[in-house]
Structures are given as C-alpha cells and as structure tokens.
Simulated scan of single mutants.
Amino acid sequence: MSRKVVHVVGTGTIGEPLIGLLCDFKEDLGIDEVSFHKNTPLTTDRSKVKSLMSRGARLTTHGEKFDGFNAIGLKPEFQTEEAIDRASVVIDCTPKGFGHANKQRYYEKYLDNTEGFVAQGSEFEFGKMYARKINDSALVHGEDKFIQVVSCNTHNLSTIVNNLALIDGEDNLIEGRFNLIRRSNDVSQSTKFVPSPQVGKHQDNEFGTHHARDAALLFKTLNLDLNLFSSAMIVNSQYMHILHFHLKVKKP
C-alpha cells in the first residue's frame, strides 16, 4: 500500500495552522507524512518554520532557494516538483491568484499519480466547489481531481440554508437573504485593517456579493437552483464574523 503524503503549499494564515493540525492528528487522519512548501527564506518566519518542522512536517522549496534556507538554519528536504510528485494530496493555501497559477504550472502535470488538489475559497473556478457535510455526495472519486473549498462565510451561509430550509425538502426554500458583517483582518495579519466600517458593493446583479453566488453554485453541484442574495460589510475589528439572515420557506 502506498504511503499517504499530504503536501501543503503556503505557510500563511490558513497554511500554518493547517500544517500543524495535520501533523498533530496525523495518526487519527490516516496520514503517513506531512510536507509543506515555503517560498521565501525569511528570518522573520524562521521560528514558525522551525516549529512546524519540530512537529514532523518536512520542508520543501524551489531548488535555487536551498542555499537561502540553509543560511538561516532551515534544511529543505525536497524540491518543489519533487514534493508535489510524491504527494497523495496537495492543499494550496497561497494568496488569491497563486492557486490558479500553480495549477497551470505544476498540478496539471501530476494528475496521474495524485489523488487530488485542493484550493481555498479565493480561487474561484479552481475546481468543483465543496463545503463539508453540504455536498459530499457530489464528489466523484477519481474524477474530481481539483476541489475548491468555499470560504468560511460561504460555509456559514450554506449551512444555515441546508439545516433550516432544505431539511424540510429540497424545494422548501423560496428565498434567502443574508448580510455578512466581516472582520477587517485576521489576528495574524498586520495589513488591510480598516479604520471604520466599510459597506461592500453588489458586484453581481443576481446574487449581490460573491458569498451568495458561491453558495448557489455549491448547491448546483447537487442539482439545486436556489434563490439567494447577500450583502457584506467590513468592520474595524479582528473578531470573527456575524451573519444576519432571513429565510422565506414553504414549510416553516
């Protein structure tokens, strides 16, 4: 039986805690090995990378950057494509746009020997949309090689629809309206903080913000066509999000 290797690309707000989580629960999850890609050798990130390595994760980077990492006391074990090639699953946690670039540059070359490639909510159209316990039945093993895990807000919105409206029938929802009040940035981030609340624009005439659009597309993988509309605003806080919703249903 082949070894189950999970490779995480990126060590930012999503990547770092995910790598640690996979390492800590490796045995429970049936994972043999965790590796991760770090793009740039920064002394400011050295303690973070050392911590991940001490928990069992194996460092990888581009071949030409090995010397830079060695110079700051970090020893990479695999080059970029070597790490992807030996992975069972690749999880891309890079900033917006990089997931698509990595897909074209690397991932599409390793479809034959990799179970799947997973990207985060910002990578729209990276692959089939997925939210845990919402559309698990829509995933086709061996066919859906590229998966986009929808954003936290889309998860929240979809869970409310699924558990409060669709539980009484797939045609029970007449319409859903949502207002997402979002934090300015994450506690680990030092940029993009706003000094006062900012109201987002309705970029989509049918759905409002991308949250309802993504949720509607998520449910379309289950052949459901839902009437959803969302608005969003950002507040000057680092606390978690608030979601206000109004559901109109046939059967209360």
Rank of each mutant, 00 (worst) to 15 (best):
C152G: 06
V149K: 00
N156C: 10
D186M: 12
H155A: 04
D144V: 07
Q148F: 04
N172L: 09
G176I: 07
E170Q: 12
C152P: 00
I147M: 03
N163W: 07
T159E: 09
N162Y: 08
G142R: 01
L173Q: 03
N172G: 13
G176N: 05
R177Y: 08
D186I: 14
G169V: 11
S137V: 11
D186T: 14
E143N: 12
S151I: 02
I147C: 07
G169L: 07
L173A: 09
R183G: 15
N172M: 13
R182C: 11
L139S: 02
E143D: 12
A165V: 11
T154R: 02
N156Y: 04
C152H: 08
D186L: 14
R177D: 11
I174F: 13
D168G: 08
T154I: 11
E143Q: 13
E143G: 06
E170T: 12
N179D: 10
Q148M: 15
L157V: 11
I147Q: 01
V149E: 03
S151N: 07
Q148C: 15
N172R: 05
L157G: 00
R182Y: 08
I174K: 09
R182N: 13
Q148I: 08
S184P: 08
T154A: 13
V161L: 07
H141M: 07
A165N: 04
R182S: 09
N172C: 07
V149L: 08
N172I: 10
S188A: 15
N172P: 09
H141S: 13
K145H: 14
R182Q: 12
H155N: 09
R182A: 11
A138R: 06
S188K: 15
S188L: 15
I160E: 06
F178M: 04
L157N: 01
E170W: 09
H141N: 07
N153Q: 14
D144Y: 07
V149Q: 01
T154P: 04
S158Q: 04
L157I: 13
V150N: 00
T159V: 12
G142D: 00
R177F: 05
A138V: 06
G142C: 02
N163S: 13
L164F: 14
R183T: 14
T154F: 05
N179M: 07
L139R: 03
V149F: 05
L173G: 05
V149D: 02
D144G: 04
N172Y: 10
F146N: 02
N156T: 11
L173R: 03
I147R: 00
I181D: 06
L166N: 03
L180Q: 04
L166S: 05
F178K: 02
D186G: 13
S151E: 03
G169Y: 10
H141Y: 10
E143A: 14
V150R: 00
C152I: 12
V140W: 01
F178P: 00
N163I: 06
N156I: 01
